[in-house]
Structure formats: structure tokens, C-alpha cells
Nucleic acid binder design. Structure first.
Lengths: 205, 205, 205, 205
DNA sequence: CATGAATGAGCTTTCATTCAT
DNA sequence: CATGAATGAAAGCTCATTCAT
């Protein structure tokens, strides 16, 4: 967590620092991100940055928190109440909101990818230690219920597909940021629908 | 390429060095891997290592070569002659051989993942400059032919699914190395089959 | 150019560093000069030196700049306006100012000689790329004018004598730094005059 | 001095090594010359080279010895018996033989220049400690006799001119190797004569 | 709250020389 | 007499972090 000093800063300055930090971690992964570059781009002294944050990790974790908070805004009613809808609708919403998010905030998407670059680093596990189980279990619970509801074949290896659907989400989003430069449009929705159909055919009852 | 000196070494010593190098690059990506650590773990002098290899990059490339050579052993007849089989058989073989490989040589799998950490580094592009185009296009060509053969629905977005099938391969393999510690067994084959079925249902004609 | 940090240093410390740097480059040429030795003699950390200067080259170029600036102080009115005087007066001034300079600042003379040691190194050409053409042609132009003025015999091989007068300048200066330890005095002036006479007799009209 | 082993070598091999060593020290000064390059170019093992020579310095000194011996061959009767001729004839012979030497054996000239690059290094002084006084005194004695003979003005600063005539010799030779690519010819003789005239006018009685 | 100089362990790489075989 | 693997001190340079002001 940033120190008190950071929050005592005039908003303008704080925002500038955040902007610079976003730029840095969007351009470089945690290891390669440079404190020197951050202070120089933000026009503050090195000492000051260390008055605001404990260390580089503190900066990074704070940023990840901001992104998480931002992502929450994209959580739709469907996702908040998954039980009220069939699993495909829920997954569709997840995908769509994910794509929307990275198209709206491409830098956050970048930071997410940079984060994946350092899988298995100490820092990655530290972050994931808290969040990953949740993320993983989310799909497992979803799938279990869907099996119970008869929406999905009983033969499906739930754990594996939970993992895969999560991974596909990531990949699908990456695909859009890498290969599709347009704004969010009808065409994207169609493709998502195609993919959901694919999923339905694949594991549906 | 390692220098002659390296190949003149007693096999025992050479193997020790290779083991240490594998450990290092499985634990750290190219940038973070340390020549100092390698020599100290191998119990040789810094000067000696540089008698064997041109530089750190030379060590890394040699290692990647070893891995590639090892991976070749897992290439089955089906993969060598993909046109003689339906696309699902080919993809199944790819997945199975990939899983076999990382279960047999988990460290090589690690090194592969570490390699992904340094995307957009100079070294990454140097390696990929030679191999990547093929890897990317491989699935596209496979899918195109399958569409032509009537194995796959015409409505399928080939580029996207090529990307996804590739990504799934990676993820599937990662899934097994992360969650499945057992040796390769019947159960894995079943799961792969399930997944292939899923794929068949999803995009099949 | 040194970084801002260097100029922000207390004068005392900056002077100490400059002194140490002068000592180092007077004792060793660019290649053999050691950053390690500099920091240890100056009693500062390696990191600090690299806060002050970009790299070893930056240190060296800064030093050469100091020397050039110092040498400028020895440029007399005669040298600034060579056309207003006969060639012997100009050459005499050049010699005298050169001798004065190295007797006043023997270490700068040393550094100059060390610089000659690395002829055909990249760094030498980098420095000379800017200054050398002028230096080489200076005497040629001087001689050409003198021939036109009738101060010098027409039979003189201008290119060769330009080269030689330049070389003699260097050698004459070296002679004084090597063999004459006294301060600048009347005797030196006499010797220079002898030499100028010698030159006049040798190539004069 | 090379070790006995070197002289026990078949002449062919010894000559090859000498050729390679000449090449190396013609291309790089003592410090920059590389033992690695020498053994690799000569196709011998590093251990062998150290069976033949004590160390790098030993190689270099042996080479300088060879050059000196070669240079002796250019010493003409005039130079061996300087008292029988006027000083200008002697100096002329010195210059001519020097030019002849470097035009015949340009690599030896190169090595000589490389040697001058490292003035003030430990190695330079070690070499010169033995030879330099002689070289310096040679011209002093010559000049003293010439003053006594009335060939040269009494006012001449003998020590300085001895130094200068020696230096000019070096420079004149360098001038020819740098700027004149032709074979030794009549034109060169003319220029030397011009220069001798210049000298005669300059210091002659 | 701001500053920025100071730090030092760490990095990769070079090269003359030694010595066991 | 030949070999070539082994050595290790030294090189230039980086960077997150500290701390006195």
C-alpha cells in the first residue's frame, strides 16, 4: 500500500504519477520496469517516490489494485447473479465485458499481458496467491452448477474445462488486442457468439 | 554454437554443465539467468565457461537446440504427414505429444514458459525470427484444409480459431504440468479425447 | 557531457574528482585508464561516478574539453590573426605558446601524449573527426600563403614541410617536457629563436 | 629470449610463427596484441607458444631483435665510418636508409610506429632503457664533431638539435609510409636532398 | 513533504598465463 | 615437444534503495 504521503498529495500530482506508472508497467513487465524512468517521466525526485511507496513492488501492487477496481465497473448484473442465467449467457457476458474492458483501457490490457509474462516469478505468485484460487474456482462452480442443471454433459472434466475456459478468456481478449484494432462493434459480438456456440456444441448436454 | 572445447570435455563434466544450465534457465528467464550462478553451481571458473561458450546467448541457444532436438523425438508419423489424416487426429497427436513431452521433461517445459516471459526482447525475436511464422501458420493451414475437406463448418473464423487452438495447446500442456503430477497415463488420454470431442462438436461440420 | 549531478557537487569534491581523473588519464591512455582506479582514488563509489558521467568516454571527453579550454588561454593575438604577420612570427608564437602550455600544465601535456598512443582506435577518430582536419591543414595554408607572399622558396614541398613543422612542434614540446624541468625562461625563448632562424634559413626565400 | 624449444623447431614452423607474430605486432601495439590471435593464426596450441617463449613480452622483444638485425643490413659504409664524411652526407644516408628500410619492409615500419604508440608504458622504457641513450647520443656526437669541424654554427643548441634530427628522421619516415605509396624512386631522393639542404641552411656554418 | 547524491552488489565478458597429461 | 582446459582478477556498467538535509 502506498504511504499516507501519497494520498496527501494534490490530486493533480497523484494522477500524473499514476499515469506515468501505468505507462511504465504497460511498456515493461515488473522486472524490467524502471524506477528511474518513472521518476524522470513524472518529473519527481527519486526520494519522493520512496516517500510515497515502500518499493517497486508496492507501486506495482497499487496499480494492480486500481486495475481490479476499474475492471469491477465492467461487471454486469448477469455476472453478479450468475445463478439466474444459463452458463453460456454468463460466460458470454464475461467475455464481452473482458473485451470491452481492454478495448476501453488498452493499457490495462497491456499491463495484464506483461503480468502474464512473469508467470512463476516470486511476484506473480505473490499476487496470484490471493486472487488465483478465486478466479479458478469461479469457473469450476459455474461448471458444476451447469452440470447439475443439465446444461452440460456429465462426462466433462470440470477442473480441466474450468481452467481452459479461463485461459480461453485470456487468449480471446489477447486475440482482440493483438489482431483487432477497431473499436468495439457488432462484428466482435458476432464472433463471441460464434465462440459461445462452439462452446455450447462442445460441452453442452 | 558452443566452442570445440565444450565438446572435448569429458562427458560427465559436460553433462553436469548442461544440467546446471537447464536448472538455471528453468528457474530464470534469459535476462535474469546468471552466468555467475551457473559457474558457481557447476563448480567451474568463469573463464572456463567462456572457453566453452561464446557468451550467455550462445549457452541459451545451445540449450534451445537441445530442447528442439528432444521435442523432435515426440513427433509422430501422424504429425509428419498431416494430410493423410483428419484434422482431429492431427490435433490430438499434437496435444498428446506435447503433454508427453512436458511430463517426460518438465524442466524443458519450464524453459519454454520462461522464454515466453521475454516476449518483445531482442533475444525473443532472434529466436522466433526463424521458427515463429511456421508455428503461427501451422494451424491456419490445417484449418483451411479441413474446411475445404468439409471437416469443419465454413462459418468458422479460421484466423481466430487457429490462434485459439494454438493457445489451447499451450494451456492444456500447462494445465498438466501445473495440476497433474502423475506420469502419463490412460486418464490423460481420455481427457484429451474429451477435449477433441469438444472441439469436434464445436467447429465440426 | 557530465550529468547535472556532477555540476551540483560541492566544488571541493568536484575538484578532487577532476584531479584524480587528470592523474589517471595522464598515467594511462583511454583504454588502459581504469574506472575502478578512479573511484578508489577519489574515494567515491562506482555508482556515484556513473551518476556524474554517462560512461568512461564521457569522463574522457569532458577532460579533453577542459584541456582545450585551458589551451585556448594560450592563444595569442598573433595566432588569432596570422595574416597580419610573417609566417615565422606565427610559427614562433605557436611553438612558444605550446611550450608555455605544457610547462604550466605538464599533466595536460601527458594526456595529450597518451592520446596519441591510441591512434587508430575508435575513440581517437571520434575526437579527431572534429578537430583534426583543421590541425593538419593549418600549416599547409600557412605555408601556401607564405610562398605566395614570397616569404618562402617556391621549391619547397609544402605538404611535406607542413607535416614536418607540425611534427616538430610536437617534438619540440616533448623535448621541453622531457629534458627541461625548469620553469619557462629566457633561455627557452632563445632556443626557439634559434630554431626559427634555422627554419628561416632552411626554407626562406 | 625464446626458449631452446623454439630453436629446435623445424625452420618452416618457426618461420610461420615469426610471420604471424610480425603480422600481429604490425596490426596491434604491444598491449593490444593478442596471444590468442597469434596461436590461432599460427595454428599452434597456446601451450606450445608458452613452450617457445617466456611470455608475451618475450615474443615482442625477440621480434624487436629481429627488426634491429634486419635494419643493420641497411647500414651503409658511410654510416659505419661517419668521421670520413661531412655530417650532411651521414644524415642523408641515415634518412635514405631509413626510408629504404620501411619501403622494403613496411611491416617493420608498422611495428616501429606501434612501438611509438606506447611511449611511457613500462614496456617502452624497458626496451628504450638499453637502446635509447645510444640513439640519442649518436646524433649528439655527430653534431659535436660537426661543430668542431666548423660544419655547423657554434650557436646551435646541440642537445636540442640532436633530439630534433632524430625525431625528424622518424617523422620523415612516417611521412613516406603514410603519404607516399610508391616504390623507392628518384623523387624521394630529391626530397631528401631538399630536406638536407634545408638542414644545411638552417644550422650550417 | 522534497530532494538527489551515495551506495554496492550484481551483471557479462576478456585474456595472459599455468599445468597436468 | 604438444596439447588445451582451467584459471581468476580485472574490466565497464546498472539499478533499486537509503538517508541526510
Amino acid at each position: 500500500m502506498p504511504k499516507e504521503t501519497f494520498f496527501n498529495l494534490p490530486e493533480e500530482k497523484r494522477d500524473l504519477i499514476i499515469t506515468v506508472v501505468i505507462d511504465e508497467f504497460a511498456a515493461y513487465n515488473f522486472e524490467r520496469a524502471s524506477v528511474n524512468r518513472i521518476v524522470s517521466k513524472a518529473g519527481i525526485s527519486k526520494g519522493s517516490l520512496y516517500q510515497y511507496f515502500e518499493d517497486k513492488k508496492d507501486i506495482y501492487f497499487y496499480l494492480l489494485g486500481l486495475i481490479t477496481a476499474e475492471k469491477m465497473k465492467y461487471v454486469s448484473p448477469v455476472m453478479q447473479n450468475p445463478d439466474a442465467h444459463d452458463i453460456y449467457t454468463v460466460i458470454r457476458e464475461l467475455y464481452v465485458s473482458g473485451i470491452r474492458f481492454v478495448l476501453d483501457k488498452p493499457q490495462y490490457g497491456e499491463i495484464g499481458k506483461r503480468f502474464m509474462e512473469i508467470k512463476d516469478s516470486a511476484i506473480y505468485n505473490e499476487v496470484m496467491g490471493e486472487n488465483m484460487p478465486a478466479a479458478n474456482q469461479y469457473f469450476e462452480i459455474l461448471l458444476e452448477k451447469a452440470v447439475a442443471n443439465g446444461e452440460i454433459r456429465k462426462s466433462v472434466d470440470i477442473k480441466m474445462f474450468a481452467y481452459l475456459i479461463g485461459a480461453m478468456n485470456t487468449q480471446l481478449i489477447e486475440y482482440y488486442t493483438v489482431y483487432v484494432t477497431d473499436e468495439f462493434d457488432e462484428k466482435i459480438l458476432e464472433t463471441v457468439d460464434t465462440f459461445i456456440d462452439f462452446l455450447k456444441n462442445g460441452i453442452g448436454a
